[in-house]
Design a binder for these strands. Sequence first.
DNA 1: GTAATAAACAAACATTTGTTTAAAATGTTT
DNA 2: AAACATTTTAAACAAATGTTTGTTTATTAC
Lengths: 206, 206
Amino acid sequence: MKKKDTTQRILDAAEALFAEKGVSNTSLREITSRAGVNLASVNYHFGSKLGLVEAVLKRRLDPLNKERLKRLQAIKREADSTGKAPSVRAIMQAIFEPILIMVDTQAFIRIIARSMTDPDETVKNVFLREIGPVFRLMFSLLMRALPHVPKDVLFWRVQFALGAMGHSLWAIGRVKMVPEGVDASISRDRLLELWLDFCTEGLENP
Amino acid sequence: MKKKDTTQRILDAAEALFAEKGVSNTSLREITSRAGVNLASVNYHFGSKLGLVEAVLKRRLDPLNKERLKRLQAIKREADSTGKAPSVRAIMQAIFEPILIMVDTQAFIRIIARSMTDPDETVKNVFLREIGPVFRLMFSLLMRALPHVPKDVLFWRVQFALGAMGHSLWAIGRVKMVPEGVDASISRDRLLELWLDFCTEGLENP
DNA sequence: GTAATAAACAAACATTTGTTTAAAATGTTT
DNA sequence: AAACATTTTAAACAAATGTTTGTTTATTAC
């Protein structure tokens, strides 16, 4: 049984710690000691902490957004050929579901969720660069699905939907404030279902 | 014209910087130099950086949640006396609108928005402690407004609504990714209106 | 007016941070 | 086996961080 590649071990450790405490609250020494490698190997393999951050994010966001794009393009093809408007629910599902099917660890989920709101400039930039094409295609499809909704209104409704997604993904498993008699535990599939109900309704508002 | 109190100037400078770059990415030296006061005065007046963070948050969250609580209690009284179910829209409005009417600066908005998502433990703890009673009352009122929605489902719908609010407040004025032909600028009142439409619909889902 | 208290100040402190260096160890090729 | 390239290691580096110190200045109380 061969020891895992140093690069991988660093990425795994960094992902877990970034997810838990954020990028700027995680030191290279924490990462390397958790990974069981030498401190200097981060700079050797990734050039700098910044390079590591980018690598951690890209490892997940890249295949995730590829899958999203694939699904959205399928929806677009279908709409083009049949001439019918695409379904709002299907579009939103193409955004959320890939997160679930590509899950390895809980840290992965948090990395995605945190990418959306992290104050760190690096994180935000990588995230925006990666999601750009996905977002544009999603928006154009939603416009076709909801021709009666003004663009500017639709834009903010999409922001609401994405905010809801990010926050709930972040909250899952670590909700602090639960009212009496409520069971806040939830499966990821169920969360997807509830989210789709919620924001399909909100997006299709007349 | 007397110079502003040192404490106030520190709070103002810290709020602006925390809002812009997050707590852990802001040094005391940045804060004090922006405030035009001595470095040591933060520790003198607030004990520690942690104390300053708490003070910055409490200065805003305290009156905000007082106002929210006042409104929610009024809704409860009305429902109690008439025996009719409270309005979902009114409840959600009681959560969002106080943010708008109590606005001084843009930094204030961002402080609120960031409080909801900041990875920093201090921020999160202060935020949760402050919003606890508000959240509980809101939830119990929503249960009366929507008796047909199971508690557990309602809980996550509320998470969606809050996530949408936090994200959009954060995004306002600093949206990075805007599709062609969309005007992403929006007034706060308009945002409130759109948000209420969106999440009222989502919450009332059958 | 003088003593007591509070506030402001410059300087230094001990840590922690990301990064670099140079040597040792390991792996690969000739 | 020797030469070379790659990787790992321990040590040190400079810069930045929150905090503490001793002193000076301003304000308040008697």
